[in-house]
């Protein structure tokens, strides 16, 4: 058992007085990927934002590559190699495509040497290689891209920091199936390259085809956590997912 890259214990967080995510545990080894599933409002976005440092942990702890990062802000976590491709893409529309990519390249690294100008250029070239369309549009405004192109830009931007953990929140939201397939093709490629990933989806066989582990959130609690190979049959999964029967935890 290799040392986990990310491990989260008993994470609780929320907004104002309301806890939205409660007692979630999660552990991820280098190169491993996990799908985070759940219906609207289950708390998926809140969970990944919290892992990225945008929301404070109310209780619980989190370590990344052995370092405790429970109290670190998102800036520190970004420099450590956690990258979130946020829900709704959040492209900077007042920046050009290339500027969006450049801002993604975090200049300093904790415990890793800072990215040099040459490295940044290299990553930029790599992004353009992956997404030729971005190269074509690189001097255009970030807001002028189509939805699919924006999703690619968002992922490319998240990759510019050469992360060790990539979290993608609903990569196929609002995309035509063909475009979503392209995006997943890319994620599969990244996985092959050894990048650890957390992929948030509402429900997607695509996501399950990509990942090693699956976690289902319902009402902010993890109701199922299992390796993909050991997932229960479709009917049970549906039940867990929607909570149509009892709500006791199903763990394999």
């Amino acid at each position: 058992m290799p040392e986990p890259l990310l491990s989260v214990h008993g994470l609780v967080t929320g907004y104002g007085p309301n806890a939205v995510v409660e007692q979630v545990d999660l552990s991820l080894c280098p190169g491993e990927s996990v799908a985070l599933l759940g219906v609207n409002g289950a708390g998926k976005t809140t969970l990944v934002s919290t892992i990225a440092g945008l929301n404070p942990l109310w209780s619980g702890s989190m370590t990344f590559r052995g370092d405790t990062v429970t109290k670190a802000g998102p800036e520190a976590r970004a420099t450590m190699g956690i990258s979130l491709c946020p829900e709704g893409r959040q492209i900077f529309t007042s920046l050009t495509v290339e500027e969006n990519l450049l801002i993604g390249a975090t200049p300093s690294r904790r415990r890793r040497p800072a990215a040099t100008a040459a490295q940044v250029q290299e990553r930029l070239a790599r992004s353009y290689e992956r997404f030729p369309i971005l190269k074509e549009r690189r001097h255009g405004g970030g807001g002028q891209l189509s939805g699919g192109e924006q999703q690619m830009l968002a992922i490319a931007r998240a990759l510019m920091s050469a992360p060790e953990l990539l979290m993608v929140d609903e990569p196929s939201m609002g995309l035509a199936p063909a475009v979503a397939s392209t995006v997943y093709g890319l994620l599969r490629e990244l996985k092959r390259e050894g990048l650890a990933m957390i992929v948030v989806e509402e429900s997607s066989n695509r996501a399950l085809g990509l990942v090693d582990q699956c976690i289902v959130l319902r009402g902010g609690r993890s109701v199922l956590s299992a390796p993909v190979g050991e997932l229960p049959d479709h009917a049970t999964l549906l039940e867990v997912y929607l909570g149509s029967s009892t709500s006791e935890e199903v763990t394999s």
Partner: peptide
């Protein structure tokens, strides 16, 4: 400029 547009997302870029 990124902060001016969207500070929250800019924080994700350190």
């Amino acid at each position: 400029r990124a902060t001016a547009e969207n500070a929250r997302t800019a924080r994700l870029m350190a």
